[in-house]
Amino acid sequence: MGNSKFGTFIIVGALTGAVVSMFDRSTRKHIVKKSNNCISEMKYYAKNTDVLRWKLEEKKDKYKSVFEQLSDDASYIKAQVEELKALTPQVKGLVMDTKDAFVESKDEYKSIVSETP
């Protein structure tokens, strides 16, 4: 079992797929274009670290505000669930009282209707 070739064949398959996909001209052009863009961005940020730092801080602040909003929403929902749990026995009692009142009224109406000649 220690001599499993599964991982090796996965890597060989991936590399074979990458090589075969390079036979297509549009794929080659796309890869070259993306690679050149990536290299030029890396060079730009290597020279302008303050811009990179500013962008990273901006992203961090954005994600932090989203996290805080989600946290606030989760707290609100939790509070609403707790309130609903507290109200459920009261609502159940109210529904049972209403049901009993309707049953009693139904019996009274039946007796009134049966007494009428």
Rank of each mutant, 00 (worst) to 15 (best):
T27C: 02
D24Q: 04
A46W: 04
S65L: 15
V66E: 10
K29Y: 03
G93C: 00
S71Y: 08
S71E: 14
K29L: 06
K34F: 04
E82I: 05
K99T: 14
L87T: 08
R53A: 09
D107H: 07
R53L: 10
G13S: 12
I11G: 03
K59I: 07
D61P: 00
M22A: 08
T49V: 08
S71H: 13
K110N: 15
T98S: 10
D50S: 13
L15V: 08
L84A: 12
G13E: 09
S4G: 11
K106R: 10
Q90E: 05
D72Y: 09
R28A: 02
A79Q: 15
E58L: 04
S26K: 13
N48R: 10
F67C: 10
M1N: 13
F23E: 08
H30A: 10
D61W: 00
T116H: 12
K106H: 14
W54N: 14
F6L: 15
S26R: 11
E108Y: 02
V113C: 10
L56A: 05
K62M: 06
T27W: 03
R28D: 01
L56F: 11
G93H: 00
K62Y: 05
E82A: 09
K55L: 03
I31W: 05
F102G: 01
D50G: 02
K60D: 00
V95T: 06
S21D: 01
C38L: 05
S26E: 08
S21K: 02
A101L: 04
S75A: 13
G13L: 08
S75G: 12
V19A: 13
